[in-house]
């Protein structure tokens, strides 16, 4: 999946995740979390999802407000779909 337009998903509300992505040829990811002790766990989870989606580009910016794993997955997948201008995931690959 290739990111070719900027996209956002999620909110800053408690227990949610805000994901922003801008198109760029390289891949970069920055993660901040209101629960600093879980920042690394959030980053690992985000990286896993992006790897599964075969995403290798885009400037990713994730702001976590204490999201659960399933929320993280939903928000990242949505941002990726919007950024790639796709309407559905290939579920067989997930």
């Amino acid at each position: 999946m290739k990111i070719h337009q900027s996209a956002v998903a999620g909110t800053f509300e408690s227990s949610d995740l805000f994901v922003e992505v801008e198109p760029q040829p390289q891949f970069s990811l920055s993660v901040t979390s209101s629960a600093t002790q879980f920042r690394d766990a959030v980053e690992t989870q985000v990286r896993n999802i992006l790897t599964k989606l075969h995403i290798e580009n885009g400037q990713w910016r994730v702001t976590d407000s204490g999201a659960l794993d399933c929320i993280i997955a939903a928000r990242v997948e949505t941002a990726a779909l919007r950024g790639a201008e796709l309407s559905a995931l290939n579920w067989e690959e997930m």
């Binding site: 909110t11 509300e13 408690s14 407000s65």
Partner: peptide, 13 residues
């Protein structure tokens, strides 16, 4: 009550 977070989300979008 979490109003600021919701409002900032909306205004940023």
């Amino acid at each position: 009550a979490g109003i600021s977070r919701a409002m900032v989300t909306e205004i940023i979008l």
